[in-house]
Design a binder for these strands. Structure first.
Lengths: 188, 188, 188, 188
DNA sequence: CATGAATGAGTGTTCATTCAT
DNA sequence: TATGAATGAACACTCATTCAT
């Protein structure tokens, strides 16, 4: 992520530009959807259109980089909860915060969906990072008796993606999450 | 749906063409997403591009017609289950079939999401048709003790949309539905 | 004008339709310019689009028919002044009224321009009707000493078209006509 | 005119292309009328269609640029005559040359008509440039006794537009101008 | 390396014209 | 004969991508 395709490390200013473009893309795509133009991203980033294409040779690669960055941030957050005191609270709290984010950032939902696909495909792609971290939270919550034992990480990812999608559209997320969480808890 | 905007009924051949276009649009948008071109729809329908625009004056109106048609079909199916013997089976079975459909037809998910929004907005739009029919199934399932009492139609719609989305992407639908359904069942 | 291209006289209702279309076209083109659609004309006339094309096989032919009708009306008015008492007043008054009409009806200007071209081309087309009638008014005004002798009908037509155009755009017609008329009067 | 909308000066090659497009547009619109297609302009200019739209974001803006360029050229010519020896000759000669140009370039007439409208609207738009320059020629011609005193610049503009229109259609310009000019001269 | 001008295939949409009903 | 549905070429305009500066 910090070096060009040629393998050579990027110069400091090039790296800075890459970051600026990525940040701009994240915001532009969040607000206008993924159909926003690359030109718009360049404008927001304060660089020329050519610079955008130098760092991300196609629009698709730019899109993917945005999703990857999002997933990495989520994975980092999940990893930070790895040794939280209350394992149930850690799991459900993380789940809730992700869904809340998705309610405003459409890209989050797309990232989750793609992460699920990637993880399934066992390609070792970035999505796996989140799924692995989430898997740890899940396992600890199961050991603590907060989550039923017959749930796997893939199912949690799918549920996360689905709830995030629903949150972005219908807006009924809070209430719905209640039921979804009850479905994950051990039957009394 | 069977008459032009002017109120006059369409000629038999015009009606046939309208249906052909709608069917083609449904398929094209399902496969290629809503960014598929109107030309593609015309080609698939075997009509000229002008014919598509005669029946649906903008691409947006064509898109909406597709969604409306989908929702109407779902609503009709739900209504047909209104007096099924096993109310729980009727409710959960319908839910399952919708999600299964969504796994292959991306448009179904979009229709559900939009239906949720419409219903929320309390407009007399089409989405309400499905939500109302679904509401009946829900109520009967609740009376039969198959679904917990504190769930409303809006929450069910949101859950339906979310699970449909997840089904289309992650593919883990069957297992995930198990948990979601458990969340809807009365706590023992 | 009262028979179809095949030479056979039109049925009464067909004739009525032709007139309706012509009237509608005149109004539509006056308001929206000649780029108005044929469909619009049909709508205004209360007939199907096919009927418009049956009577006027191309849009151009419809346009020309409108111009011809306008010119015929002007020619008729000019002919009515053929034996007016004050020949100068007849000539200048007619000129003034045409320009006033043109200020609101753009088609009048176009008709005059085309009439001028036609007359020049000596094709014996309709434009000549107006030019001939105007020629009579001119001659009588010259005999009465109200217009200088070295002016011909073609020049008057050109001046009429030019002033009509100016009237439609700049709006300064009244004042400008004063000078144009002075230019036509005999030098004292 | 020599810088983009963003205020930054254009690169040399961009400037060259802009000029090529403008020149091509001028010719294409002169020959085929303003309904000529933008593609045609691009083809004539030897650039891609995208280049045309980069410099002139809508067809209307291209059209306006053509008219503005024409008016500026005319205004410059008029200003060059500001201190000519024979003020009457300067005024009438300029008038004559404009009309002669209009006989072949339809766009000239449209430019004049629009200039008249602009000037009337008292906006600081380009049309005023020509009217002002023409006003100087007019005043000097009036002081020299070559033009009657009760004529204003607006009337001259209207007459200029009208005569230009007539010249483009009927072709009788020379003779007609004689009478129009006599109308502007002081009554003996 | 950064820039932004140039490119041109592709899009939604219109409209004169044809022809089956 | 009248109708209006069907047609498809044409249009203005967009945008991802390339490349000379």
């Amino acid at each position: 992520m910090t070096s060009s395709a040629s393998g050579r490390p990027l110069r400091a200013d090039a790296l800075r530009n890459r970051a600026k473009v990525l940040a701009a893309a994240e915001e532009v795509f969040a607000v206008q959807g993924t159909s926003a133009s690359t030109e718009e991203v360049a404008r927001k980033a304060g660089v020329g259109i050519g610079t955008v294409f130098r760092h991300f040779p196609t629009k698709e690669s730019l899109l993917e980089a945005v999703l990857v960055a999002l997933l990495e941030r989520l994975a980092a957050e999940a990893e930070g909860l790895r040794s939280a005191d209350d394992a149930g609270e850690a799991f459900f709290g993380f789940f809730t915060r992700v869904v809340a984010q998705a309610a405003t950032k459409r890209a989050v939902t797309e990232a989750l969906a793609e992460a699920g696909v990637d993880a399934r495909a066992a390609t070792g792609r970035t999505g796996t990072g989140l799924q692995a971290a989430l898997g740890v939270l899940l396992e600890r919550a199961q050991e603590a008796g907060a989550v039923r034992a017959d749930v796997g990480p893939a199912e949690v990812m799918a549920l996360l993606a689905g709830m995030s999608y629903a949150a972005g559209r219908a807006g009924a997320h809070e209430d719905v999450l209640t039921f979804a969480f009850d479905g994950l808890r051990p039957r009394p």
